[in-house]
Amino acid sequence: MPNLELDKLLLSRGDDGRAIPGSIAYWYSDFWTYIQLIVETIFMALTATIIGAAAAFLLCFPAARNLAPNSVIFLLSRRFMEICRGVPEILYALVLVFAIGIGPLAGVVAIAIHTAGALGKLFAEVNENASLRPVEGIRGVGGNWFEEMRYGVPQVMPNFVSYTLLRFEINVRASSIVGFVGAGGIGTELNRVISLYSDDRVVAVLLLIVLTVTLIDLLSERLRTHFIGKEHFA
């Protein structure tokens, strides 16, 4: 564990303007860089969640047993989603970093792929529990399969939104780690300070990550209850 010397913790900068090792000022001397990386991390998660959710939305209709136009499409979509889900994000990130180089893009795509699979499965399950009557109503007026989905299934939207917000929370966590293999975000910094054996800095970065994740969790929970509450009173 890092050297936690309480007397040194609160010292401000020394006479030569450099921070004294052991103080909080030293821990966070790269504070501005950290903040930038945290912001990048959050945006990575946001973009990945949006893209992943869009893909999941497109896939969840053919992947629902009661909605799929035929069983081949159903099986294909399900298998595809399972592949996306089964491989952990960090592995995708590893491969993508190799393919397109170091940087946040690898992280975004890796998380987006995993999200598509995970959300897709949840969405498909929600669809399978939905009532088919409106869908049949649309079929009865002469709608094609796409129209059946577009008009017959909007009942599931609140659930979709709730799951997506939950996924955003998880993705913030994931995006803070993928940097470890070079895929952008605060994880890159974590990797750097670990290899420097700078314990204090490691703790500093870890604390920052935990703090960010907790804040996002709280925010997302607020949003979810607000949204679900609004839906129920609509």
Binding site: P134, E136, G137, I138, G140, V141, E147, Y151, P154, Q155
Partner: peptide, 22 residues
């Protein structure tokens, strides 16, 4: 239909308009 088979979450007018989807 016996169970009406309307789309609950959409408003009445849109439900009626779905008759023109074809």
């Amino acid at each position: 239909f016996q169970q009406f088979n309307l789309v609950g979450r959409l408003d009445v007018l849109t439900n009626v308009l779905t008759g023109r989807l074809y």
